[in-house]
Structure formats: structure tokens, C-alpha cells
């Protein structure tokens, strides 16, 4: 099934520059329906409010709620638990990847990353586009 290029994507990062970078890269990939949040708790509110997001792309190291905790909350929520969730983070130790995997992450991108990597990981999660 073809990917809906109008799907809502939520990007979560406490660096506004990184939000802007990811937004622009997504726009270049053809996705324009993008919302932003600056920490996990704000993102969780947005996800629960509408429930119509097709993908979450989240940083890890944020306060007050980290990306890992957001992921756990999403997976524990009956309505959100199947939400595709990509972690984009500078945390690159194996224990981080294992913790994210155990929490149910869909894919994991280490910063700094390029547009090609972002596209490849998105395709592995939501399908070819």
C-alpha cells in the first residue's frame, strides 16, 4: 500500500534548530503535514488529543519527559501503542539502543544523520515512498 504523503508526522526535540532541520528534510522528502513538540509530555498530550498521527520522530534527551519515557507511554496506551516511532538521538551506546528496543522503538537514528538515512529508516517503518 502506498504511503500517504499527507500523513501527520510529529517531531519532538528540545532544540528548535533540530526541529527545523527535520521539518525541512521531511518537506524535501514530500511530507508537509508536520507538527512539533519540544519534550515528551507536550508530545504525549498532542498524540492523545488527536490520535491521528502516522509517525513520531523523537529525540531522547529532553526534559521534563524524555523520548524513552514518551515511547513507553505510547506503547502503554491502547490507542497509540501501534504508532510508528523513530528515535533520533546522539545517545549512541549499545545500552541505549537496547533500552529503546526493549521499549518498542520502530527504528533508531544516531545524530548526526543525513537525509538518506532518515528516508531509509522512515521507509523501513511506514513503507516505500
Amino acid at each position: 500500500m502506498a504511503v500517504d504523503m499527507n500523513m501527520k508526522i510529529l517531531i519532538v526535540d528540545d532544540y528548535k534548530t533540530m526541529l527545523r532541520i527535520i521539518r525541512n528534510l521531511l518537506r524535501q522528502l514530500g511530507f508537509n503535514n508536520i507538527d512539533e513538540a519540544m519534550d515528551g509530555s507536550a508530545a504525549l498530550q498532542m498524540l492523545r488529543a488527536t490520535g491521528d498521527y502516522g509517525l513520531v520522530i523523537s529525540d531522547w534527551n529532553m526534559e521534563p519527559m524524555t523520548g524513552l519515557q514518551l515511547l513507553r507511554e505510547v506503547r502503554a496506551d491502547a490507542k497509540l501503542k501501534s504508532m510508528p516511532f523513530i528515535m533520533v538521538t546522539a545517545e549512541s551506546k549499545s545500552e541505549n539502543v537496547i533500552a529503546a528496543k526493549e521499549a518498542g522503538v520502530s527504528n533508531y537514528i544516531v545524530k548526526p544523520f543525513n537525509a538518506e538515512t532518515l528516508k531509509a529508516k522512515m521507509q523501513s517503518v511506514i513503507g516505500e515512498f
Binding site: 526534559e63 546522539a90 545517545e91 544516531v110
Partner: peptide, 23 residues
């Protein structure tokens, strides 16, 4: 961070040096 498990704090290491980091 609010809601984080205590052991999660040890996972916040930030960027690693080349060699110490996983690619």
C-alpha cells in the same frame, strides 16, 4: 526527567567520541 525510571539517568550520556560511539 519526570517519569523517568532511576536507571534511565545512567542512559543519558550525550554524544560519544569517535571510537566510543556505535555507528
Amino acid at each position: 526527567a519526570v517519569g523517568d525510571r532511576p536507571e534511565d539517568q545512567a542512559l543519558l550520556n550525550g554524544p560519544q567520541h569517535t571510537g566510543a560511539a556505535m555507528g
